[in-house]
Design a binder for these strands. Sequence first.
RNA 1: GGGCCGUUAGCUCAGCAGGUAGAGCACCUGACUCUUAAUCAGGGGGUCGCAGGUUCGAAUCCUGCACGGCCCA
Length: 499
Amino acid sequence: MIEEVRKQRAKEVEELRLLGINPYPYRFEKKHDTKMIHESYDFLQPGQVLENEKVITAGRVMTIRLHGKSCFFTIRDFNGRIQAYIRQEEVSEQKYELFKKYVAPGDFVGIIGFPFKSKTGELTIYVKEFQLLSKSRRPLPEKWHGLKDKEVAYRQRYVDMIANDSTLERFKIRYKAISFIREFLIKRGFVEVETPILNFIPGGGAAKPFVTKLEALDCDMYLRIAPELHLKRYIVGGFEKVFELGKNFRNEGISYKHSPEFTSIEVYQAYADYHDMMELTETLISDLVLHLHGSYKVTYQGTELDFTPPWKRLKMREFIKEKLGVDILEDKEQVLERALKDRGVELDTNTRARMIEKLWDLVEDQVIQPTFLMDHPVEISPLAKRHREDPRLTERFEPIIFGMEMGNAFSELNDPDDQLERFKAQLKLRDAGDEEAHRMDLDFIRALEYGLPPTGGLGIGIDRLIMLLTDSPSIRDVIAFPLVTQSDDDDAFEGSAAE
RNA sequence: GGGCCGUUAGCUCAGCAGGUAGAGCACCUGACUCUUAAUCAGGGGGUCGCAGGUUCGAAUCCUGCACGGCCCA
């Protein structure tokens, strides 16, 4: 039982204190990480020893192989693993006994020693001194199979990261990607800005918001569903290139590609249109893929995705017509509804906008390779500028990859009269029962009346992008601490608070 | 919200024509000075997800619930 291990470890901690050894000391001057050590000494030949080199490193003990008066153990740090070797005759009998008795898998230790390569050719640190840095009190998951239980992996991600190197690696890639995106945009002259998460009017997208309460003013507020409308206010105010990377909240279903709390990046550029945004998207993502994989090609769930620019362009109207035989611009609503009913799709609200969205949903999974889905009808694009060639359409695109919407972009609507009309049309959809329809935001109209320059805007769903980059089948695999329902967590409290 | 599958030791998993629970790793004790899933000997550890029901008897069959996974809405 786990209590047995915890009691044993607690006993060891007490014994260490009696010996005058702090099981939780304050610091250790770590000089070398495992990667540096490998880079410096992997050249050694089996049996070769560099007695005059000094290596000072630290990490978590993962495995111990004890052989009486000597012992091999492996430590892991953020960058990898390194084997260490400790011998009674080197560190003194007293110190060796201390190691044998009180250092266990899971503990953090600091070691000082010199590098050598074992007979079997593994680079190893010959320990001259060691220091216990933190005692672990719980048993680690199995060293060979790792942790497979997804529930534990989601609820106790730290255990998942300890037990599965691939998990740690996945999150390293996530943050490497995010940092690349920031640098890319900053190099292009964009300024990283912030907008409110607490909103009186949740805008910038079609979604149900989370409601919360502002005690000070005794009123309801909403968590943002998108930063879009505030970012455009920056452009009105005089910023010309801005972006914001952060969390959005949507009170909707949870699925392999939906999380109620997700990360997006939104980018706005004055004097640009959606063609410029397409170039930006294509370059940003393909450069990112190249940066991480050394190639424009990525295998996702067994399918090769080719990010080599330029990506395919697909017009929404033409694609739906080709696949389903209906014209989302010309056909009457009865025709669109018939097409949906024939394919077993039920409509929750009977609006033309909803029909078009549902028709697209039917064909979305046929788009696998990186593609720009372009020129959406005006009914489903309340914040996008009308198409310069056809006012029934907008200058909008969504990057679609592996059947997933990876983002959304437009030539931003900057005509205040048209924006007001669009908001009014959205209110009608709300009245028709569409809870996701956009709300009226009169301050945003006022901002547009002061003047928004021609602007291109782009949003990208970061989590979905990371899914593709890490070959993860579910959005939960790329969110370190995903939403899980609360449970009576006996294991966490048992013994801890009571004792 | 609906359907299917799952939940047994800390971890990975066996056990299921109903007869009182097992392995490997981990843990504890001992042996062992180049191992690497180290090895060898011994030992401890389980309200078999929860609650009911059927039965002389339930990890095993039935019902409900919780949590998780996958698919659909």
